[in-house]
């Protein structure tokens, strides 16, 4: 049961992270297609965005690993 719980946590985190990052990255591509000279500034901003978006799924992954290792929820 714990294995299934951890698997679900990590799987949904992967789905959410994929969707979230794809939204950020596609908006970045749209931005530089519209204004190629803004590439430099947008590049840094995009990575801040990805760092922020990535956080929530990776927190879920970390707690999934903790559940798997039996730290809690055993």
């Amino acid at each position: 049961m714990t294995t299934i719980a951890a698997a679900l946590m990590i799987a949904f985190a992967a789905i959410a992270g994929g969707i979230g990052n794809s939204v950020v990255f596609s908006k970045y591509l749209e931005g530089i297609a519209r204004q190629p000279e803004a590439r430099g500034t947008l590049f840094g901003q995009m990575f801040i965005g990805i760092g922020l978006v990535e956080a929530v799924p990776i927190i879920s992954v970390a707690f999934g690993i903790l559940v798997l290792l039996g730290v809690f929820g055993g």
Partner: peptide, 12 residues
């Protein structure tokens, strides 16, 4: 979230 973001990334 500030703490969890850094910890979870490196821990995972």
């Amino acid at each position: 979230t500030h703490a969890l973001r850094l910890w979870a990334n490196i821990f995972a």
